[in-house]
């Protein structure tokens, strides 16, 4: 489903990612770990096309990112769910509208949107907060709203960049359970985190990045 083929990324003279090659299969849950500044976020940015590789190619399904036309970028992004450490919710939109936005960009009808959004909010246990605004939510609730937005369009895979970085330990456990539930239902998930507790007992594959070089750690 996702294949990195000898991907390198440089910022000026600094090497951020060096000759990265790995694959993630459909339905897999994969952790990318490493210290701050190791290149985890950059690797995810390459997947959601916020950055472009300087060398190598990334293959997502049938898309080769090295030769992707710029006009196809929105199309590809619609099939990727992204969850950020800082949630990236739009403050002046309700939880419902934040989640609905992922479907509105696809041009879905309002009736379909309503059903799908309430379904997604139910999955993340946030249905009762549909009309609330992000400022009125706790950190855990905001992240659950962001996860609902990521899953509502039934993407090919979900990318999570330090999804529990701003959360307390109890909420972290809740959010990780949520990711495991989503993964069990068949969605591929890549989680970038420096917090080893998240995958220690998960039994999932772990890739370690250090100074731009990737090594495989194996299951926790």
């Amino acid at each position: 489903m996702i294949t990195f083929q000898n991907v390198s990324k440089y910022y000026e003279s600094e090497t951020i990612l060096r000759n990265i090659s790995f694959s993630a299969q459909k339905g897999e849950m994969l952790f990318i770990t490493g210290p701050t500044g190791a290149g985890k976020s950059t690797l995810l940015k390459l997947l959601y096309l916020s950055e472009y590789p300087d060398e190598g190619d990334i293959v997502i399904g049938d898309f080769h990112l090295a030769s992707l036309k710029p006009s196809w970028i929105p199309l590809l992004r619609r099939n990727i769910g992204v969850v950020f450490q800082d949630f990236k919710l739009i403050n002046n939109l309700s939880v419902f509208d934040n989640v609905a936005l992922a479907l509105r960009v696809k041009g879905r009808s309002e009736r379909d949107i309503k059903d799908a959004v309430f379904d997604a909010l139910k999955k993340v246990h946030l249905r009762q907060k549909a009309n609330s605004y992000p400022r009125k939510l706790s950190g855990g609730e905001m992240q659950r709203a962001a996860i609902a937005r990521a899953i509502v369009s039934e993407p090919l895979f979900i990318l999570a960049d330090e999804p529990t970085g701003n959360l307390d330990s109890n909420t972290t456990v809740d959010i990780m359970r949520l990711f495991l539930d989503i993964n069990i239902q068949g969605t591929t998930i890549l989680i970038a985190t420096h917090n080893r507790e998240l995958f220690r007992h998960s039994g999932k594959r772990v890739l370690r990045l250090d100074r731009g070089v990737m090594t495989e750690e194996g299951g926790g």
Binding site: L76, L89, I90, A102, V105
Partner: peptide, 9 residues
């Protein structure tokens, strides 16, 4: 930026 990341044209 958020809307663009969601795949908006």
């Amino acid at each position: 930026e958020i809307i663009a990341l969601l795949g908006a044209t």
